[in-house]
Amino acid sequence: MNLEWKIKRFEALSASELYDLLQLRSEVFVVEQDCVYQDIDGKDRKALHLIGEVDGETVCYARLFKPNDYFEQASIGRVVVKQTYRDKKLGHVLMREAIIVMKKHFDATKITISAQLYLKKFYESHGFIQTSEMYLEDDIPHIEMKKGN
């Protein structure tokens, strides 16, 4: 498997790239998780988009924010891996790449995320620690987690 990374600002995304990343997010966060919510939330325009492709197919994705664009600290969100690629541990590869890109583009080592509660151990394996009680976001249990504090 040859995974290729694209890092783009919103304005640099082609219509096809934007379609593919929104399709992946909808596939996982709306259909697979059976959660009706407003995915297109206006924050994509501020984000740096990290797209992982295999043979031109978008298989993983995250959006990255500099400090004060989402949280006070830099943040990573909409972390998603296509279902058919999850057995390849791409979530871990994606998080490692996202952390590297955060440092390179934003000089950020302090990162805050809003994590789905069931993924707590996954994010802990990347150095994040829980910093809030559980809260509901779109009727899904979440926790705030921070890295580098």
Score class of each variant (00 low, 15 high):
Thr84Leu: 08
Arg9Met: 07
Gln116Ile: 02
Gln116Ala: 10
Tyr37Cys: 14
Met1Ala: 04
Leu22Pro: 08
Leu50His: 06
Leu136Tyr: 11
Val101Asp: 07
Gln23Glu: 13
Tyr135Glu: 08
Cys60Asn: 11
Val93Ala: 10
Arg45Gly: 15
Lys120Ser: 09
Glu97Leu: 07
Val79His: 00
Phe128Lys: 04
Ser26Glu: 12
Ala74Gln: 07
Asp20Arg: 08
Glu72Ile: 13
Val30Thr: 14
Leu24Trp: 07
Glu72Cys: 13
His92Arg: 11
Leu18Ile: 04
Phe122Asp: 00
Glu53Tyr: 04
Gly91Tyr: 02
Lys103Asn: 12
Lys82Ser: 01
His49Ala: 04
Cys35Ala: 15
Arg25Val: 02
Lys6Met: 05
Ser75Trp: 01
Val93Met: 10
Val28Phe: 03
Met1His: 03
Glu11Val: 11
Met102Ser: 11
Phe122Ser: 03
Gln83Tyr: 00
Tyr118Gln: 15
Lys103Trp: 04
Lys82Gly: 03
Asn2Thr: 11
Asn149Ile: 15
Gln33Cys: 12
Ile140Trp: 06
Val93His: 06
Ile40Thr: 10
Arg86Met: 10
Val81Phe: 06
Gly127Met: 04
Ala74Tyr: 04
Ala12Ser: 12
Leu21Gln: 09
Tyr19Glu: 07
Val54Ala: 12
Glu97Phe: 01
Ile111Trp: 09
Gly77Asn: 09
Phe65Gln: 13
Lys121Ser: 13
Leu22Glu: 03
Cys60Val: 08
Val31Pro: 01
Gly148Phe: 01
Asp55Ser: 14
Ile51Ala: 08
Val93Asn: 04
Val31Met: 09
Val30Gly: 12
Asp55Gly: 10
Glu32Gly: 12
Gln38Lys: 14
Asp39Gln: 04
Ile40Ala: 10
Gln130Lys: 15
Arg25Glu: 03
Tyr70Trp: 08
Ala108Asp: 09
Tyr118Arg: 14
Glu144Cys: 00
Pro141Val: 11
Lys8Glu: 13
Met1Pro: 01
Asp20Leu: 05
Tyr85Trp: 09
Ile140Gln: 02
Ser14Val: 01
Asp44Arg: 07
Met134Leu: 11
Val79Asn: 00
Arg86Val: 02
Val54Arg: 07
Tyr19Ile: 03
Val36Leu: 14
Ile143Ser: 07
Glu4Ser: 13
Lys89Ile: 01
Ser132Tyr: 13
Phe122Pro: 06
Arg78Lys: 09
Ser75Gly: 15
Lys103Gln: 12
Thr112Met: 12
Leu90Ala: 04
Ile7Pro: 04
Tyr37Trp: 05
His92Val: 03
Leu50Pro: 02
Lys120Phe: 02
Ile140Glu: 00
Ala47Tyr: 01
Asp107Phe: 06
His142Ile: 03
Lys103Arg: 11
Arg63Ser: 01
Arg78Trp: 02
Ser125Gln: 10
